[in-house]
Structures are given as structure tokens and as C-alpha cells.
Amino acid sequence: MAISKEKILEDLKQKFSDNILDMTAQFGDDIIHIKKEALQDIVNFLKEDPYAFTMLLDLTCVDYQGEEERFEMVYHLFSLSLNLRLRFKARLKQNDCKIVSLTPIFKNANWLEREVYDMFGVHFEGHPYLRRLFMYDGFEGHPLRKDYPLRKQQPKIDLR
């Protein structure tokens, strides 16, 4: 336990004062709202010692339909040495739903981003192979968006 959580949050605030919008905590989890441009810098900064957030636990997206900044990317980072999880959030606009890819930093971001692209239609700049992961070619729309109907099926072959 080299560094305390408060110290890390303070360091972040100092280093990226312009890019961090808000810091909150809920149910014991720390949430850091950031601007989407600064994502890669912040992750790179935290990956180095002494913070060592070397694991991307999870990456997902939330659709807030009706709001101007419709999509919210959620990143969970984890530090094995500090035993600490942090959650980062970045908002994307509907007509500009693009964010920088994390594939150069974390290898599992490849599939996770493909999943988000498949389910929400968010584009990742710098992703080497952005292709649908769960659904098939020829599937129209993005199923996890709130405006996609639950039961709208698009069969691949003729059904009887």
C-alpha cells in the first residue's frame, strides 16, 4: 500500500485539472468524469508507476436517450499492487459518437470495443479491426440502444 486513494485522486486533479470535470463517489466506488479527449493521456499516466493501474477490468457504454450527450463510456481500471478500482466516465454526443481507442494500451480493449461498437454504434478511432462481435454482418441497427425494439428480429435465413 504505497499510495492512498486520496493521493491518487489529488494527483489526477493537479495533472489534468482542465480535463477532469467532476469527481464523485457513490456506494464506495469512486467515479471520475473526464473529457473524452484526455482519455488516453490519463490512462497512460495511471498505468505507470507508482500507480500501476495495469488492468482494464471493464469497458462499457450507457445510452441516455434524449440527452444531448447521449452516450456515456464507462471504464473500470484496476491496480493489482494498490488493490484499487477506479471508474472513469466520458460523455459522447449523438452526432459525434467517436472516442479514441485503448487498444494500444490494453489488449483486451480490442474485443471490448468491438462489443460496444456492435451494441451501441460508437466508433473507436485507431482501432485496428472494428467489426461486429456478437451480431452478424447484415444486421441493421445497434440492439442495446434504447430505441431498438426488444423483439425486432432480423433472421439470417428464411424461417418457416
Binding site: 477490468l57 471493464d58 462499457t60 450507457v62 483486451n108 471490448l112
Partner: peptide, 28 residues
């Protein structure tokens, strides 16, 4: 195995995401 739940105060989750362990393992 992680669950990420967003609630908007109603009886249905607004969003639920499952952190599946074998997703990351098979990716390798």
C-alpha cells in the same frame, strides 16, 4: 465476475453490464 448496475430509481435496471471473466481470457 463483476456486475455493473445503473438504477434510475424504478424497479427495472436502467443498464446492467456483466464483466464476464472468460470474455477476457478467450480474447487472448
Amino acid at each position: 465476475l463483476g456486475f455493473y448496475i445503473i438504477s434510475d430509481g424504478t424497479d427495472k435496471p436502467y443498464r446492467l453490464h456483466l464483466r464476464a471473466p472468460c470474455f477476457h481470457i478467450v480474447a487472448a
